[in-house]
Amino acid sequence: MKEFGYRRVKHVQEALALTANDTGARYLGGGTNLVDLMKDEIEAPSQLVDVRFLPLSGVREAPDGGLAIGATTSNSDAAAHPEVRRRYPALSQAVLAGASGQLRNMATVGGNLLQRTRCAYFADPSEPCNKRLPGSGCPALPGEHHNHAIFDWSRHCVATHPSDMAVALAAFDAVVHYETLDGPAEIPLSEFYLPVGDTPHRETALPPGALITAVSLPKSAACPRSRYRKVRERASYAFATVSVAAALELHDGLVGRVGIALGGVASRPWRARVAEAALHGEPFTGAGLRDAAEAELAAAKPLRDNGYKVTLARNLIVAVLTELAER
């Protein structure tokens, strides 16, 4: 680990000023991913600006009738909040499916969005990796990629995004709020993560030095009939192989609002818009659902050793939406 300075801040402006004056500074939330990566010098900040004592914690009602979750709210508190559980149950389930009780107590909502891929080559400094060392190559493409992307990868990077929470946020049309020295701003989660292209090291649309302050969930997306289902190589305490977050409204057998997002299949939560469009406004039938899932996965480009994820994602979409419809 490289040496670094440590500052605890009480005001957002103080935090922004510190990072503006030191481009090597990084915000410290729970540290569950950042400190881990610092140990192998994959991250080497000059300074850690500890933002956990900013007044950004807690879940509150948003002006539009939705919910806003403060960026420094712990994953545990977000998942346990009664209104999150009542109105956006898939979000609670997604957070609870991630990591362990200890790590959820530490990790913040803002930090969860910014966690880096768990690709083993990224985590091993003695390997090349375009995300870690741009231009060095992607050993996962010819190598071990059993648990890598099937959508939207490039020859520069085939890694997946590890967050469970972000998958549910994608299905609920969440918005990320942040602050810079220019003032507050926001960006839809659907535009928060950048496509891989030839710049896999550029992961989010956040401007340099920006501090995430909250994530908001629109009222319109509130859906008690929602579910997160995660499949992984161990029953708990493992990253997703494929996961699905889905919210479904049915009116007299017709599909109303439907939100579906997949985890473990791309460098970002994969919003299944093709499947959603196929389902929306139509009568809910098993055949229609299978066709919708099929249509979504038609665009998948599996790697040499992860074609099973296409099958798994298709099956999961069908299983989760069927379960929701039968409630």
Binding site: Y6, G30, G31, T32, L103
Partner: peptide, 13 residues
């Protein structure tokens, strides 16, 4: 009172 992993918690924090 909350459980955490101390290996990823900085002492200063």
């Amino acid at each position: 009172g909350r459980r955490v992993v101390s290996c990823l918690t900085l002492a200063v924090a």
